[in-house]
Amino acid sequence: MLPNAELEVPTAEDLELVELAREVIDASTDAGPDEDGAHTMGAAVRDADGRMFAGVNLFHFTGGPCAELVALGAARAQGGREITTIVAVGNHGRGVVGPCGRDRQVLFDYYPGIRVLLPTAEGVRVATIETLMPFAAAWTMEGGTQQFDEERFR
C-alpha cells in the first residue's frame, strides 16, 4: 500500500473527471446490476488544455481494450495530445477503480507524470504513474525496453 503522504486529495477538476467517467458508463453499460457485460467500465482523461475525453471498455476473452485505453484513443482522435489526468469508474455505482497492470505500463510508457485517480480507504486520491510503478522499466517504440531512469522517480 502506498503511504498516504504520496497521495494527493483530488481537486474539483479531478472530481469533474470522475463524474464524466461515471456518466459515460451509466449511459453505455450493457449489464444489469448483477450481470456480466462487454461494457462495464468507463474512463475519462483530461489534457493540458483542460479538455476532457471519455471511453468505455470492450471486454473480450482475448484481452479487449480497457476503458482507460479507449479514453486515451478517443483523446488522441480528437486532438488531445498532452494527457495529464486519468480515472476509471465501474458501472452501477462501483466508483473509482485503479488501472490494471497493463494500463499502468501503457500510462508509464506514453504519459510520464500522468496523475491517476485511485480508490483508497480515505476516498479517492491521486498519485503519479511513477508512484504506482516504482522501479519500472520504460519502453519506447524506437528503442524497446530502456534502462532504469532514476530521474523519473524523483
Rank of each mutant, 00 (worst) to 15 (best):
Q146K: 06
I129V: 15
G113T: 01
D49I: 01
G64N: 07
G32W: 02
P65E: 09
C100G: 13
V18I: 15
D49L: 12
T85V: 07
G64Q: 09
D30E: 03
I129K: 04
M1C: 08
L58G: 13
D103T: 15
E68V: 13
M41G: 01
N4I: 01
G101L: 07
E82N: 15
A31S: 15
A38P: 04
G73T: 10
A21D: 02
L7F: 02
A121D: 14
T85G: 00
F135V: 07
I129A: 02
V56G: 06
T145M: 14
I114D: 06
P33E: 05
A75W: 07
N57E: 11
V126S: 05
M1E: 00
L2A: 00
E16L: 10
P33K: 02
L69W: 02
T128Y: 06
V106Y: 09
R102D: 11
Y111R: 11
E6L: 08
V18M: 06
R115H: 03
E150D: 13
Y110C: 12
G64M: 00
Y111L: 15
A48P: 02
G90W: 05
P10H: 12
A127V: 00
G123K: 05
F148H: 13
A127M: 00
A138D: 10
L107K: 09
E122N: 13
V106L: 11
A27K: 13
A54R: 15
V56F: 11
H92R: 14
E68S: 11
A43L: 07
G143E: 15
R125N: 05
G32K: 05
T120R: 08
T140H: 08
L7N: 01
F53G: 04
Q78V: 01
L15D: 09
A48T: 11
D103W: 01
M133W: 00
P99C: 07
V18R: 13
F61R: 14
G63Q: 14
L17R: 09
A54L: 02
P3H: 13
